[in-house]
Design a binder for these strands. Structure first.
Lengths: 170, 170
DNA sequence: GTGTACATGTAAAGTGTTACATGATTTC
DNA sequence: GAAATCATGTAACACTTTACATGTACAC
């Protein structure tokens, strides 16, 4: 999913600024399955304005640039609906962690052990964060997606703890 | 992990052609956590040649271009080891499927239901394929990574089957 | 005969990240 | 006094995909 459609989808759930969209995608409910940087979000929003898919109202602030709050237009909503008709492409997962394990013949067991420990710690943090997000219920769909993310994180954690010994067998 | 390091890592497990690397990454044991197209693999291999990190022997074939079989050099192996010292970046997952569910307020329940059904079927296929791969054991590390992939796929399948009703509650 | 697998490679186009630029306010 | 948060935006760079170019062999 490109950043353009991602912005459209997030705005369909409520008005937002570019800054807020970035936060949602980086840390919030969307972080489990998407990514985008300022360098792609701001230009995408500008383009959506030009195309009439969103509108924007500016709010003055002291010491900060004006806040630009974007809203989806009727045409924008149609465009989103249209984009969602297409079959979703396959998931794309990239994991340097898994790659490192596979290629790690040359690396010391201590290093591998440390990689696993770090990873386990990371999963535990993510699980706590996700559980907090589930509390602040938004829609049934967001509960479903957060629950999905939580289930996957927990399973990954279980697997790592149960099977880490495999990597140290001769 | 960039395509360059990916090629280095795959060659560390055994000699391969560009074509074979692409197959491994697209369908094989690496497909769970990486991606790369011919358009990035072939240039990457050429560059690795120029840098002396790999060598190449050509095998003539009838009717097809000569097969170029690449091998990692000692310098290449050092470069890989060096690259693996760095902490792996975070996993990046992108899922149009999950995004579609979150944004699907405007979409009909029938469509959502069909998306889930397709996804369940897809997981079942992947699970069968992964189980076959586990049979053709390579190294303890590859068993670990394949087992990880299998565990995640099975958990995703379980979750979808157990919780799909959430999306249709009023 | 139609499609898939084998096998390499290039060029253009698209997409995205990183680093920069600016600057007040709040927290440690 | 250093770092994080809020807030926007651009430019250079990196990376990837897609489409093209070429051609055989085999299965259905």
């Amino acid at each position: 999913m490109d950043v353009r459609t991602l912005c459209l989808g997030i705005l369909a759930l409520g008005d937002a600024t570019g800054y807020e969209i970035k936060k949602l995608v980086a840390d919030g409910a969307f972080s489990f399955f998407s990514e985008a940087s300022y360098g792609s979000i701001y230009p995408a929003l500008s383009r959506l304005m030009d195309e009439g898919l969103v509108t924007c109202r500016e709010e003055a602030q002291d010491g900060k640039p004006d806040k630009k709050i974007y809203s989806l237009t009727e045409i924008g909503r149609e465009e989103l609906t249209h984009a969602l008709q297409k079959d979703p492409g396959p998931d794309r997962q990239r994991s340097e962690f898994l790659a490192s394990l596979l290629f790690a013949e040359a690396v010391s067991p201590e290093r591998v052990s440390q990689l696993i420990d770090d990873r386990i710690a990371h999963h535990k943090e993510r699980i706590i964060a996700l559980k907090e997000m589930v509390q602040t219920e938004l829609t049934p769909a967001s509960d479903f997606v957060l629950g999905y993310g939580l289930a996957i994180q927990e399973e990954a954690l279980r697997y790592l703890e149960a099977h880490r010994d495999m990597l140290f067998q001769k």
